[in-house]
Design a binder for these strands. Structure first.
Lengths: 183, 183
DNA sequence: ATTTATGTACCTATCCATAGGTAGATTCGG
DNA sequence: CCGAATCTACCTATGGATAGGTACATAAAT
C-alpha cells in the first residue's frame, strides 16, 4: 500500500466521523508518522484531499455495486444489493457514508468538494432508478429512488448516533420491501 | 430579544450549515458586534453552547409539534404534522435539522452534546410511535417510526445538498403515505 | 558508463490566522 | 452601590500553508 493510500485511509477515517473540519494536516501527519508539510506534498490544499477522498469513495462504492450485481438480477435483488453495499460501508468501517456527512455540511464546503458530493448523489439516484421495476413511470422512479437514497442515508446517521447498528437493518428492510410491494 | 437569544440564533445558523466545528467564538462575536470574551461570558465552554443550542432546538421542535396537533387528530393527520414541522425547519431556516447534522458528527462531539442529540431522537421516535395507528404491534410501530424519522432526516440532507427543496416534499410524501396505506 | 537532469518523498523551520479559553478592569442600568 | 454585561489584553494550541533544503531513485544526454 502506497503512502497516498494510507494517507487517504487515515483522512477518510477521520472525515467519516467528524466531517470536513475534523480532518487536519497535523493529525494526518501524526497518524502517518510524518510531518504535516509532507502531507501537503501529497495534497497541496485541503480541498485537493477532499476531492480525492470523495472520488475514491464514490469509485469504490460503484465498484462494489457492480461487483455484486448481475444483469439477470431482479429489481428486488438489485435493491437488496444497494442495501447490502450501504450496510457494509456502515459495518466494515463503523462510520456513516462519507458523502452523507459531507452532504449535510455542504454549505460550508469548498465548491469543488460540494460538486463531487452532488455527483455522487446523482449517480446513486440514477443507479437506483435503473434498479426499479420497468412498469413504473419515470416520475415514480425518480420519487422512489429519492426515498430509497434518503432513507439509507438517514438510517446510517440514525443508527450511528443511537449506537444501534440494527436500526439500519430495520429501516432499510422496510424501504426496500415497500418499493417492491407497493409497486 | 435578549443578547443570549441573538447569540444562539447566530450560533444555530452557523452550526446548521457547517456542523459543530463550523462555529467559533470569534465568528459569533463578530456576528454580534461584541468581543469573543463576551461570548464566553454567556457560554463559558463551547459544549455549554452546544447543549443550549440542541435543547432550545428540541424544545421549539416539540412545541411546534404540539401547537399543530390536536387530540382528535387521526394518525394520518399527526404524521402530516410531523412532516410539516420538519418542512418548516428546512424551509424557514434554509438549513437542515441541527440534530441531524450533529448526529452525523456524533463520534467527534463532546459527550454531553452527544447525549442531547440521542435524547432528541428518542423523543422523536416516541412521538411518531404515538402517532401511528393503534392496530400496529409495538415492534411494527418501532420499525415504522424509525423509517419515518430516518427518511425525514435523509430527505433534509439530500434536498439541501442537491439544492432542491422540492425533493424533501417528494420523499416525505411517500414516507407518510406508505405508513398510512400499508398499515 | 558516467555525468546531468528530473522526480519523489520526505525534512526543518516558519508564517500568519484562528481556535478555545482566562484574568482582571470597566461600564452601565436598576 | 451592585451586579450584569462587556471590555482590554492576553495565553496556549492548532489551523492551513509555504520556503528552502536533503537524500535517493530514475531517466536522459553525452
Amino acid at each position: 500500500m502506497t503512502t497516498t493510500d494510507k494517507l487517504m485511509d487515515a483522512a477518510e477515517f477521520r472525515m467519516r466521523r467528524g466531517g470536513y473540519n475534523a480532518v487536519s494536516f497535523r493529525d494526518l501527519a501524526s497518524d502517518m508518522g510524518i510531518k504535516s508539510s509532507s502531507v501537503h506534498y501529497h495534497y497541496p490544499r485541503k480541498e485537493d484531499l477532499g476531492v480525492a477522498l470523495v472520488e475514491r469513495y464514490s469509485q469504490r462504492f460503484f465498484e462494489a455495486l457492480n461487483a455484486r450485481s448481475d444483469p439477470s438480477d431482479t429489481s428486488s435483488q438489485r435493491l437488496q444489493t444497494f442495501r447490502a453495499v450501504y450496510r457494509s460501508a456502515l459495518n466494515d468501517d463503523g462510520a456513516i457514508c462519507l458523502c452523507g456527512l459531507l452532504g449535510a455540511e455542504i454549505d460550508c464546503l469548498p465548491d469543488i468538494v460540494a460538486q463531487c458530493i452532488q455527483t455522487f448523489f446523482l449517480a446513486n439516484l440514477d443507479w437506483i432508478k435503473n434498479a426499479l421495476p420497468d412498469h413504473l413511470t419515470d416520475a415514480q422512479k425518480d420519487a422512489n429512488a429519492a426515498v430509497i437514497l434518503a432513507g439509507h442515508q438517514g438510517a446510517m446517521m440514525l443508527a450511528t448516533s443511537m449506537k444501534d447498528t440494527a436500526l439500519f437493518d430495520t429501516i432499510t428492510a422496510q424501504l426496500i420491501s415497500a418499493e417492491s410491494a407497493v409497486n
